[in-house]
Write a protein that binds this DNA or RNA. Structure first.
Lengths: 193, 193
DNA sequence: TTGACTAGACCGACCAGTCGGTTTATTTTC
DNA sequence: GAAAATAAACCGACTGGTCGGTCTAGTCAA
C-alpha cells in the first residue's frame, strides 16, 4: 500500500537520515515524494508529527535487521549473546553508514520538540528492553563483583553504538562505528573470562 | 582583554552549547554579545569561521578541566589511570550537562561545513593523543590476548562519553553520561584484574 | 452531495550575509 | 607636537532567499 502518507514517511526517512531533520525541508520531502503541500498537511498536522512517524518507521526497520542473524540458531545462550554482538558489529556499516536517526533526532530535537523527544524516549527504552534478555547470559556468566545486569549491558551497547557514530562523523570515517562495537566486544569477552 | 571578537566567541559558545549551531542565529549572538552585525562580519568572514573558533575555545577549556584533578598526584601509573577515569566520571555532569560541543558539531555539520569538519577531526585526534598516554598503563597491565592499546582505550573512552551524551538527550536524563563512563570503568577494571 | 483527499499559490517570520558609512587608533609629515 | 593621512574596528539598515504553515479551489469516490 503506497498511500501518499506512507510514501511521505519513507521518503522523509531517506532524506532525514542523510541530511538530518532540520536540514530537510517540507518542500524537499513533498517534491521527492511527488505529492503536494496540501496533501502533506492533510496527513500530518505539523512537520514534527511527520518526524515522530519517521522515527517509528526507522525503529521498526532496525528491529527487523536486529532480529535476522545466524546468531539466533546458536543453542548455548552465552555463545548466542556473543554472536549477537558480533553480528551487530558486522552489520554496522550497512545499518549506520549515514548515522542513526534516533541518535540524530535526540541530539537535534530533544530540547525543542517535545513530541519527538517523548517518542525517542519510548523507542530507546523499547530497544533496550528487547536487547537486555539477549545479553543477559553475559551478565550471568560474569563472576566478578560489581557485575553489570543484562539491562545495563544493553544500555551501554546502545551508548557505544551512538558514540561510535559520533566519532565516525567527527573523523569522516564510518569504520569507527565497527571499531567502537569491537571494543564493546572486548569488554564482554573480558567479563566472561 | 574583552575585545568584541573574543566576546562574540564566548557568547556564541554559551548559546551554541545549549541550542546547537544551526539553531543559534548570528543576530542572536551579536545581540547577546552587545555588538553589531558589521562588527561580526569584520571579525569573521562567515558564521562557519566563528563556529571553528568556538570549537577551538571549547576544546581548550575542556583540556584545562581534564588536566586539573587530584588523580595527577598519584604515583603508581595504573592507579593514576584508573583515578583519571573516575575523575572524568565525577566531573561529567558539570562538563557535559548541556552536551558536548564537538560531538554536537560533528553530528550536525560534518557533512555540510568542511572547515568545521576539518577542525573537529584535528581536535578529536589531539584529545585522543593526550589521553592515550594517561590510559596506557591500563593497556600494559592487561594480560589477556587481544589487549587494546592506550590509543584504542582513549578513542573508546571518547566514544563512550559521546554515546552517553546521546543517551542522556534521548532520555532527558543527564545522569546517563556518568552511567556510560561508569560502565567504561567496569571495562578497564575487568582488563586489569 | 458530501467528505476525504489533492493541488499549489501565498504568507509572515526568520536567516546569513552585504554595503555604505562612522568612529577610533595609529602612523606620517611638516 | 599638531595636523593630515591611513588603517582598523565598528555600526545597523537592507537584501535575497528559505522555511513551516495556511488558504482557497478544486478532484473523485461512495
Amino acid at each position: 500500500m503506497a498511500t501518499a502518507k506512507s510514501k511521505m514517511i519513507s521518503t522523509a526517512r531517506g532524506l532525514m537520515l542523510i541530511r538530518g531533520y532540520n536540514s530537510t525541508s517540507v518542500d524537499e520531502i513533498i517534491s521527492a515524494a511527488g505529492v503536494s503541500k496540501g496533501s502533506f498537511y492533510h496527513s500530518f498536522k505539523s512537520k514534527e508529527e511527520l518526524g515522530a512517524a519517521v522515527a517509528e518507521e526507522y525503529f521498526e526497520e532496525g528491529l527487523a535487521v536486529m532480529g535476522t542473524g545466524s546468531y539466533q540458531e546458536i543453542q548455548d545462550p552465552l555463545e548466542r549473546a556473543l554472536a549477537f554482538v558480533e553480528h551487530i558489529e558486522k552489520a554496522s556499516p550497512a545499518l549506520w553508514n549515514h548515522g542513526c536517526m534516533l541518535g540524530s533526532f535526540a541530539m537535534d530535537l530533544s530540547g525543542t520538540h517535545p513530541a519527538i523527544a517523548a517518542c525517542l524516549n519510548r523507542l530507546m527504552d523499547n530497544l533496550e528492553a528487547r536487547m537486555a534478555p539477549l545479553l543477559e547470559p553475559i551478565a550471568l556468566a560474569c563472576r566478578c563483583d560489581d557485575a553489570p545486569s543484562g539491562r545495563e549491558l544493553a544500555n551501554h551497547m546502545m551508548a557505544v553504538i551512538e558514540g561510535g557514530i559520533v566519532m565516525a562523523k567527527a573523523h569522516g570515517d564510518p569504520s569507527r562505528i565497527a571499531t567502537a562495537i569491537h571494543e564493546f566486544r572486548r569488554y564482554v569477552k573480558a567479563l566472561v573470562t
